[in-house]
């Protein structure tokens, strides 16, 4: 499959990239890892006449911890780097786990977090993880800058609030409170290279190792046109004493959040059953991690 012709730009500063993006208007596409864009261009879904590479913009591929209170992740950080990052695995567990499940090793070496969020596929791996971590996205254009919560970012399949002239610069996440733990479960028909049938991300915070739940976040992917937070299920959990029965209940309530479809990857009924089971399982795993939380290094 051949790529259509286009002009290629390789700006070496963010300012230059933003200027190109605003000057070229709708004829330009940003290129990060290319694992979505180049496929869409080969399939003639996207036909940009200009492609602007992010590769030479300094800093976009860095993970910067901020004194233990937060972390800034550049939009061009690869899934492989997220998955292998010690601090992320330890404190921002759902994101590192989700990145480790994205595609196969070769895809993970190229695919970026920015591309995954902006591409906004309902079944994508990183959006639910970013949602339970309450990530903030920094968007920049040549003339303005804004910060939006990831929970307000997605509009529909392939649609976000990002404007044509904006670039997603970074993803900022505050460090979860002490006694927090998280997990991520992806269900596909095969282990790798699989668009998920259902995916679940969870963060739980406890008052103390044997205390009640002070905060709970659950996000589900592939079950609705955008990834969704299971707010009613979260409500069940907050203030309650953790138990297997409670997590089972939360799973049942969580199903109510979803409007899954029947397709070749699975029927609606099967998906609902899986949402229930996987939400419970993910909560159990997050609970175990929250109990064994250790003070920072």
């Amino acid at each position: 499959m051949l790529l259509p012709k286009f002009e290629y730009h390789e700006p070496s500063t963010l300012q230059e990239a933003l200027k190109l993006l605003s000057d070229l208007g709708g004829n330009a596409k940003l290129l990060a890892g290319g694992t979505d864009l180049l496929v869409r261009m080969k399939r003639k879904i996207d036909k940009p006449s200009h492609v602007i590479s992010l590769a030479r913009i300094p800093g976009l591929d860095e993970i910067v911890p901020r004194n233990g209170h937060s972390v800034t992740i550049g939009s061009a950080v690869s899934a492989a780097k997220l998955a292998g990052h010690e601090l992320l695995s330890d404190r921002f567990t759902p994101l590192a786990m989700a990145a480790g499940r994205l595609g196969a090793p070769m895809i993970r070496n190229r695919a970026t977090i920015g591309g995954n969020l902006v591409n906004a596929r309902p079944a994508a791996d990183l959006p639910p993880a970013c949602m339970v971590l309450d990530a903030t996205l920094k968007l920049k254009s040549a003339s303005r800058e804004r910060e939006v919560l990831v929970n307000e970012f997605f509009r529909g399949p392939g649609e976000t609030i990002i404007e044509q002239d904006e670039l997603l610069v970074s993803i900022d996440i505050n460090t979860p409170a002490p006694w927090s733990g998280g997990s991520y479960i992806k269900l596909g028909a095969r282990k790798t290279l699989e668009i998920s049938m259902v995916n679940v991300a969870v963060m739980l915070t406890l008052q103390s190792p044997d205390g009640s739940i002070t905060d709970a976040k659950i996000a589900l992917g592939a079950v609705a046109p955008t990834p969704v937070r299971a707010l009613l299920a979260e409500k069940q959990l907050i203030g309650a004493t953790p138990s297997e029965a409670l997590f089972e209940k939360a799973g049942q309530v969580g199903v109510g959040t979803c409007s899954p479809i029947t397709d070749h990857r699975g029927t609606m009924e099967y998906r609902c059953m899986m949402i229930e089971v996987l939400t419970k399982r993910c909560l159990m795993q997050a609970f175990e991690r929250a109990k064994s939380w250790r003070p920072g290094r």
């Binding site: 290629y8 070496n109 190229r110």
Partner: peptide, 9 residues
């Protein structure tokens, strides 16, 4: 790092 050369310009 191993990559899919069909998806790299």
């Amino acid at each position: 790092a191993p990559v899919n050369s069909c998806l790299v310009l």
